[in-house]
Design a protein around this nucleic acid. Sequence first.
DNA 1: TGAAAAAATTGATCTATGATAAGAAAAGAC
DNA 2: GTCTTTTCTTATCATAGATCAATTTTTTCA
Lengths: 190, 190
Amino acid sequence: MKSITEIFKGLELTESEYTFIQERCQKLELSKGDILLEKGQPTLSQYYVLEGCLRSFFEDTHERDHTLQFAIHDWWISDYTAFFDGNPAVLTIESIQKTTVLEFSREAQIEIFENIPKVESFFREKMEHSFGAFQKRIINDLSKTAKEKYLDFLQTHKEIETHIKNYHIASFLGITTESLSRIRREIAKH
Amino acid sequence: MKSITEIFKGLELTESEYTFIQERCQKLELSKGDILLEKGQPTLSQYYVLEGCLRSFFEDTHERDHTLQFAIHDWWISDYTAFFDGNPAVLTIESIQKTTVLEFSREAQIEIFENIPKVESFFREKMEHSFGAFQKRIINDLSKTAKEKYLDFLQTHKEIETHIKNYHIASFLGITTESLSRIRREIAKH
DNA sequence: TGAAAAAATTGATCTATGATAAGAAAAGAC
DNA sequence: GTCTTTTCTTATCATAGATCAATTTTTTCA
């Protein structure tokens, strides 16, 4: 069974440290379509995906949605702006298949950091990598065509791609489903 | 004279802590057009802007450049992907006017963190906010028209706008200077 | 397994922004 | 203060991707 021993792999935590962490997080089971975080709500937690797939998205004023992030096994997800500064969420997080997550509240996280300092470094490193991923995403958005973005997505999200509907990929790339469909035909031809 | 006392305002550091930090950073004077970091180089430092203005940008395969970030007084800048994971820089950082920065190497930073822990928390918070800014930027890129992005830029970069040429703003927004010019005319009409 | 719902594709047209090419305005240099 | 260079604007035309409207394919589940 997938559990917290997996999250901190590489850290070599003791039994008691694991227990300490385990007591401060909560396992949640989600069905396809369930909403884990609703925009407008306070964002008090960060989530670790054990199994399944989530996506975070932004609904614009025209009721169109724009996917910020997908998260499968071993990924973290939240509305980080909201989580960090205490504002209500601007993102919604939904389960796009049967998913199991571990929920860590801000307080739990701080308590864990204070008691097991190497977990804080672990989190900082995770965040540094996410930061890099965001930087790369912005560069891609600025410099690539829709087709190039799609090809890049297939590369960088290899393990994810099969879980996800094309209309969600389109929403991540910032194009319509129709355009994605044409791009796919283009690619298939060659 | 602007100096490191300003960087960590709110932290209430002692004289000796300031000295410790001061001995581990380096003040650099840049003229307009100087390159602080060149793509392809190892990225060993992070920079704090005392005065002036820098921009980081990405050069694509068509030799077009795309601005990721501007930094004026009291902002930090680097190629964070490169800085964090040790890869060569993909970004170039140039001075777009006479600028003074403080350079902190990765090692200096770690040494400072180890000796003055509250500085580590200070940096983590800085990074959390930058993270939020990147999240917002991606959402804007996905959901807004060029005109909306420009109006948003004027809001969020109020103090910066006067330092920056329109062609750099266009490069930040992901549009051509000609398009920006049209947008500006549009806005002026109303 | 077969009907209903969801997702993907296709075609025709439209539109925002890009490309190219001048010219005008502003900023710097001497 | 004028000359040169840089930056900004304008006009025209081209194009990637959006929109609208079906239709086909795939998935779901009774």
